[in-house]
């Protein structure tokens, strides 16, 4: 069922009531990643952070500000104090921009953009490098290099300006995204993952680049229960991407069979993600996404 996107302004993407809650959140990555600029995130890189990490013998050229003079007084040898340096985190939010996302009630593409905007805001507020990407027709259209709260409007305008159409070309789009010089960090791929060409290759490409990949699957309520909101059981199902048609009668048995197949499909997705070291989560587009952001994603460890 088509429920076209209705987002036209920033308030539609990010409600003011949610902003206060998002201000308290930050991204978490399962990996200690090296950023390109000093940020607000600890990295494995020893440097100018606040948290002490270790000592090492002084070498010529070292910054004398980090010499531990107390040890020198006791041992008469120069040691340098090593700190965990706080670095920025790369956050890439990739949205499936194919026509298949422009379905459902609520619209999957709208929900994906709302979640993307909220996560972008969290990233910008915490001084991370945020990149938004639209996976579409084998390409990844990006809005890169955003940092700081001021860029939230840019991100919102970019998201509002996106239309879901065409095919995904998931493999190509992911490879395109992976090859971009976006540094390392967290990649959140929001899609329905109902991809005829498959998703494993694309996710593998992202994971291989060292990204902490989070695969967020959004399904509409109609996809989970095809008879929901439908009176007529005799339907001709039209695939929005390849225009393929399926004529079917949505009897109870057929719906149950479909749900069984969907469950199998999702299980395969989870298994693939686990194998690739990708975190995965499936939500309905009817989810209370504020609760989802504030509670669910914190439990999942994507936010803190």
């Amino acid at each position: 069922m088509i429920s076209p996107s209705k987002l036209i302004k920033l308030e539609d993407l990010l409600q003011p009531s949610l902003v206060a809650a998002l201000d308290r959140l930050d991204l978490m990555s399962r990996k200690m990643l090296q950023g390109r600029m000093q940020g607000e995130r600890r990295s494995r890189r020893r440097g100018q952070g606040m948290d002490f990490a270790d000592f090492r013998p002084y070498a010529a050229g070292d910054d004398l500000r980090f010499v531990d003079w107390n040890i020198y007084g006791r041992l008469d040898r120069l040691f340098l104090k090593m700190f965990l340096e706080e670095e920025d985190l790369g956050l890439v939010i990739a949205i499936d921009g194919s026509a298949s996302m422009d379905t459902g009630d609520p619209n999957k593409f709208d929900v994906a953009r709302r979640i993307a905007m909220a996560l972008t805001y969290v990233g910008l507020v915490n001084q991370h490098r945020v990149t938004l990407a639209l996976l579409k027709d084998g390409r990844a259209d990006r809005l890169s290099g955003m940092r700081g709260r001021r860029r939230a409007a840019d991100a919102a305008n970019w998201l509002i300006g996106q239309k879901a159409a065409g095919t995904t070309g998931f493999d190509g789009a992911c490879r395109s995204l992976a090859s971009a010089r976006l540094g390392r960090g967290v990649v959140i791929v929001i899609s329905d993952y109902l991809l005829r060409e498959g998703y494993e290759s694309g996710l593998r490409a992202l994971a291989a680049r060292g990204w902490d990949v989070f695969a967020l699957q959004i399904l509409s309520p109609e996809e989970m229960d095809p008879r929901k909101n439908n009176q007529n059981l005799d339907v001709r199902l039209v695939d929005l991407e390849n225009k393929g048609e399926v004529e079917i009668t949505l009897t109870g048995a057929v719906v149950r069979e479909h749900q069984r197949r969907l469950e199998t499909f999702n299980a395969a997705l989870r298994e693939t993600c686990m194998k690739l070291g990708v975190r995965q989560m499936t939500i309905s587009s009817a989810v209370d996404y504020q609760k989802f952001l504030v509670e669910t994603l914190r439990k999942e460890g994507l936010l803190k």
């Binding site: 088509i2 999957k108 109902l194 005829r196 005799d234 695939d239």
Partner: peptide, 24 residues
């Protein structure tokens, strides 16, 4: 006679194709 079925656009017919026995 073939049924006059209601058109419904969906994201993908990936999971439906094996269900149907109706002719196209």
């Amino acid at each position: 006679l073939k049924l006059r079925r209601e058109r419904r656009d969906i994201s993908s017919t990936l999971l439906w194709t094996s269900h149907t026995k109706d002719l196209r």
